[in-house]
Design a protein around this nucleic acid. Structure first.
Ligand SMILES: [Zn+2]
Ligand SMILES: [Zn+2]
Ligand SMILES: [Zn+2]
Ligand SMILES: [Zn+2]
Lengths: 132, 132
DNA sequence: TGTTAATTGTTATAATATAACATTGTGTAA
DNA sequence: TTACACAATGTTATATTATAACAATTAACA
């Protein structure tokens, strides 16, 4: 079987919504907002989320248990993600920095262990919030 | 009031247990294991965990919702953490690499945003598992 | 077309975490 | 010492996040 190139109905509904809101959103919030489209149960949302994460269309912000659309055409496999998170207004943005990703992809620990995947979450104050 | 230098009873019980098991452990698993010490409710565990994270005695492994004792005397404030996680055996270890931490502490995003805190989780196969 | 795997639908439940409120302990200063 | 402020505790209930189990349907392929 070939790798799917089109999303299934529920996957598309969930992705459309996540792309529309354009900020990290939680699973049950997605559920409430797509019920009019016929998705009724948490599992339908979680299954779509799992697949969308797997194919790199969305990422999970682990520290928030929230999901956000990928903004970086380079990370379609979702194996190398970095985010900045404002501790005041909660704004999250995906970092796309080739130097950083190169550095991290090549990182080895002291035992020589290499990694095929990483997730990095930075916390600080965004521009808006640091002026206040 | 001076900053506390001794842990409270529940904080000490929880920390003792986490240090003893020496691997990431989940809150409810901690609860089950410290009930004989008089801790009866989830909140008692979560409150201790919150404090221990805050003072850097333990860290939360976000991708696993688990807690692990700090192995790195340099990160007592818990603001710069990095872990390696084996995708096969689930082994987790804290990375202490001054080059890496220096690089990340000084990282700025393209908008010039600087960060006072980060958490990095690497995934791969540990030495044992990559031989198999 | 028959076969396999992916997706869906549905109900129930597990696992993780916090709200709310009353009580007790502990350090500090008048 | 006593009174105050704050940290920590105890307790019950509930909120939030996520998965188990199983039946039915749909899509891709040989
Ligand atoms: Zn991305
Ligand atoms: Zn902000
Ligand atoms: Zn540490
Ligand atoms: Zn391993």
């Amino acid at each position: 079987m070939l790798k799917q190139e089109t999303l299934s109905k529920n996957q598309q509904i969930v992705l459309d919504y996540i792309e529309k809101v354009n900020e990290p959103i939680k699973a049950y919030s997605i559920l409430h907002n797509v019920q009019k489209k016929g998705i009724k149960a948490p599992l339908q949302v979680y299954r779509a989320l799992d697949k969308l994460v797997e194919i790199g269309k969305i990422h999970k912000i682990e520290s928030k248990n929230a999901f956000v659309a990928c903004k970086n055409s380079n990370c379609q496999i979702s194996k190398a993600t970095a985010f900045s998170i404002c501790e005041s207004c909660e704004e999250v943005s995906e970092i796309s920095d080739s130097k950083l990703s190169k550095y991290l992809k090549n990182f080895q620990d002291k035992a020589g262990m290499k990694f095929n995947k990483y997730n990095l979450e930075f916390f600080g104050l965004c521009k808006k919030c640091s002026i206040k």
